[in-house]
Nucleic acid binder design. Structure first.
Lengths: 188, 188
DNA sequence: CTATTTCATTCAACTAGTTTAAGAAACACT
DNA sequence: AGTGTTTCTTAAACTAGTTGAATGAAATAG
């Protein structure tokens, strides 16, 4: 996992370890919130075990934005970066173990060594470009197509996550997802 | 305009000027492409005059992602950052004047001074967070609501941009936008 | 200043996705 | 095991948004 992460950050082994040693363990029990909308997200969290999903709430409904599994960093970036209240929520799907670093400590690293500045830039660029791809995908493809892609490329999601959450992620009702699955099964 | 830009980049006056002096003028005539999908986007461009829009093409249709006006930086970021072919197009809506910097020169700056590294990070973070807001907006609001927001907050768009492009931006057909406008006008 | 193309509107028929409501299946808990 | 709870499926009625075709208005070219 460390290797996978440093592929993005491109830090020297020493600097990477120094970053890693500043991470502190936390845990979230299944079904519990880690961040609620309105709160300030002051920590960057890495999942070492478990799964978390992020969602907006609209009229009591959860509108799921994404899922995070082992090896994935998450935080509410607008809140973390700009110090504004978070507009979304993060909740554990399973019992989850984290390694976290506070905004202050991270800023400390940025100032301590330009390599961290660079790592921060690479991270933001990485997030930004993956974001673009997600947006493109959601514009381009119908729910059926997106479900097919998910089933093909993201077994981690389709196998670990209940269907009504997947429906919310695809931005459709569970009933409609059921209908899609039925049609796909018929055409086998 | 310079002030507005350096509010994001947070460079010292000297470093900002040094960056600014590396920019080179280019121009795009109305209706012409600046980047076509499949090409490599190797420059970051700032609009000093005119307007540009970016779009994906799907079965011959243009699906508009966004508009850029004076003071706005644009490039295909995934292509620019990761050196992959661009998946979208950029075309001038009006005769447009640019200031551009190549990826190589920008990387040169990053290496020359950590302040640029920091500016790059701030830029990527800024883009990333505005992206999130755009995505949230498009998930949350109906086309009618989004049109109302546009009409209220983005006169630059509704006044300068033809309606069929706005429809594409809202991800609806021009016919439906017409219908929306009619209904809104009736309820005045 | 007319001819041509491009843009905006209207309408009717259609399709994709929602809603409501009900039953079936899986799960959790003494 | 059996009972309550949560998840998944099915179906019918509905709504939002599309398609296609026709019409008029505006911009552009020659």
């Amino acid at each position: 996992m460390k290797d996978k992460i440093n592929k993005i950050l491109q830090l020297s082994p020493d600097l990477f370890n120094s970053f890693w040693n500043r991470l502190e363990p936390e845990s979230i029990p299944k079904g519990k919130y880690y961040i609620k909308e309105g709160q300030y997200s002051k920590k960057l969290a890495l999942i070492t075990k478990g799964a978390v999903y992020s969602f907006y709430s609209k009229e009591g409904e959860e509108i799921i934005e994404g899922f995070c599994f082992e090896g994935c960093f998450f935080t509410d970036y607008p809140s973390f970066i700009n110090g504004i209240p978070s507009k979304k929520n993060f909740k554990a799907i399973e019992d989850t173990e984290l390694l976290v670093i506070s905004k202050e400590k991270l800023d400390g690293l940025y100032q301590a060594n330009p390599s961290y500045e660079r790592a921060g830039r690479l991270m933001a660029e990485y997030l930004f470009t993956s974001w673009e791809m997600k947006l493109r995908d959601s514009i381009f493809s119908s729910p059926t197509e997106r479900y097919l892609q998910l089933a093909a490329n993201r077994k981690d999601i389709t196998q670990r996550i209940p269907q009504y959450l997947i429906a919310s992620y695809l931005n459709i009702t569970p009933q409609y997802l059921s209908q899609i699955r039925k049609k796909l099964a018929e055409n086998e």
